[in-house]
């Protein structure tokens, strides 16, 4: 009887004493797992961030000086529902046996930056005016004249706020060889993708990448959704 008392068999119908033990053991196990999962999530998100930074090298150097008046508008990183699930593990023992799923990290882009870009394009290039226009009502010559205004302005705005360079320096249409370990985010393979690297192919599009962004800063009360104020002449 003493033997069976210390050899806890969880499959047995639990007595009062056994149930406490089992509950304690499960709690300890659950807590340990929680810690491991949390550490794993942390590690993964750090790895992802490092990778992202390496790929784009986008520096937002405008952010430093004005932090006192303007909240930083970095994209929020949300760990979807993960924390809640982990807590559940402690309570419901069944889930303990499931393999830990790959944590899904989604970035939510802030609408302000997008609105700001629209505002810049409208101010300098009349971008919204142009695309809202009914093209069928006008002749090609008139559209061309307006497009000239729009395109010159867009070019100016984009060049002013973004440093854009091509991903590949080779001439389009020329043969190109990709060594093993090339950056798949920078170069997209298409067509007859078989075999192993190095891959030989033709450069169809040289690609674009932004190397630097200089967006203006916004005051706290700025209503970014007004991308062009109505104008009343007195």
């Amino acid at each position: 009887m003493n033997n069976t008392e210390f050899n806890i068999d969880l499959n047995l119908t639990p007595t009062t004493f056994d149930a406490i033990h089992a509950y304690l053991a499960a709690t300890v196990f659950g807590l340990a797992l929680t810690v491991i999962i949390l550490l794993f999530i942390l590690l993964l998100s750090m790895l992802r961030n490092a990778k992202k930074a390496k790929q784009t090298k986008v520096s937002t150097n405008s952010e430093q000086t004005i932090s006192s008046t303007i909240p930083k508008r970095e994209p929020e990183v949300k760990i979807v529902e993960k924390v809640v699930e982990v807590e559940k593990i402690v309570e419901i023992e069944k889930i303990v046996q499931l393999p830990a799923p790959e944590p899904i990290i989604l970035k939510e882009s802030t609408p302000e930056a997008a609105l700001q870009l629209l505002n810049l394009l409208q101010t300098e290039a009349r971008f919204i005016d142009f695309i809202k226009e009914d093209m069928s009502a006008h002749s090609d010559a008139d559209i061309g004249a307006a497009a000239r205004v729009m395109l010159t302005g867009c070019n100016k705005t984009i060049n002013q706020h973004f440093d854009i360079s091509s991903v590949r320096s080779e001439e389009e249409g020329s043969p190109i060889t990709l060594a093993e370990g090339f950056n798949a985010a920078e170069v997209r393979l298409t067509g007859n993708i078989v075999g192993e690297a190095p891959f030989s192919g033709t450069l169809i599009h040289k690609g674009w990448k932004v190397t630097n962004i200089k967006l203006p800063k916004l005051t706290q009360d700025h209503q970014a959704e007004i991308i062009a104020a109505a104008e009343v002449e007195l």
Binding site: R126, D129, F130, K132, E133, M135, H138, D142, I143, A145, A146, R148, V149, M150, E231
Partner: peptide, 18 residues
Amino acid sequence: IAVVVPNRGSSLIGGTLR
């Protein structure tokens, strides 16, 4: 070089001087 003066209103195409 073409020089264009667009209309001040939201209609960009009509009323453009070219």
